[in-house]
Amino acid sequence: MSVLIRPVRNDDFDRWLPLWDGYNAFYGRHGASALDPAITRVTWQRFLDPAEPMFAGVADVDGALCGLVHFLYHRSTTRIEPVCYLQDLFTAETARGQGMARALVEHVYAHAGAAGVRRVYWQTQAGNAAARVLYDRLAAHAGFIVYAHDV
């Protein structure tokens, strides 16, 4: 098995979409709570637009996509250079335990480093125990609790 972690390409959409759907289902965004398809279309377009600070990488195993990572750069009040928010990370169930999630996070680290960004951060649900085992190896838990409110 040959695994290549690489940026998405325009022709990846049909292979990326089932991973995106799986990610959203994992976080309860399906059925009546599903994302509006327009959000998916605009998100995909942003990944491919060089003027956007949003990026997507995939784990490509002999032409089959088995994982995704989405990240973006933004300003911070605590740093001069931008920071990187790793927003989405997902691997297909059949690909778990093979190091793909680690490789996808390391892809983000490399991309951020090349862009002069020194901090990558992300969040996950407290109950996502399997992912947290990996995350605890890759980064320091800062202890923050996330609040959100739609307006």
Rank of each mutant, 00 (worst) to 15 (best):
G28E: 12
R29M: 08
G31I: 09
A34D: 14
L35P: 05
D36A: 02
P37S: 11
I39N: 05
T40H: 11
R41P: 14
V42W: 11
T43L: 11
L48I: 07
A51I: 11
P53Y: 09
F55M: 03
A56Q: 10
G57S: 10
V61R: 15
D62A: 13
D62H: 12
A64Y: 05
C66R: 11
C66H: 08
G67E: 06
G67H: 05
L68G: 01
F71N: 03
S76I: 13
T78E: 07
I80V: 14
P82N: 07
C84W: 11
L86V: 12
Q87I: 03
D88E: 10
T91N: 02
T91K: 03
E93P: 06
T94H: 09
T94N: 08
G97N: 04
R102A: 12
A103Y: 00
A110V: 06
A112I: 04
A114S: 06
A114Y: 09
V117A: 06
V120N: 09
Y121V: 00
Y121F: 07
A126C: 07
A126Y: 06
N128V: 00
A129T: 13
A131D: 05
R132G: 04
V133H: 15
V133K: 15
V133D: 12
L134D: 01
R137E: 12
L138F: 00
A139Q: 10
A140T: 09
H141E: 15
H141S: 15
A142Y: 00
F144Y: 15
F144P: 00
F144A: 09
I145T: 14
I145Q: 13
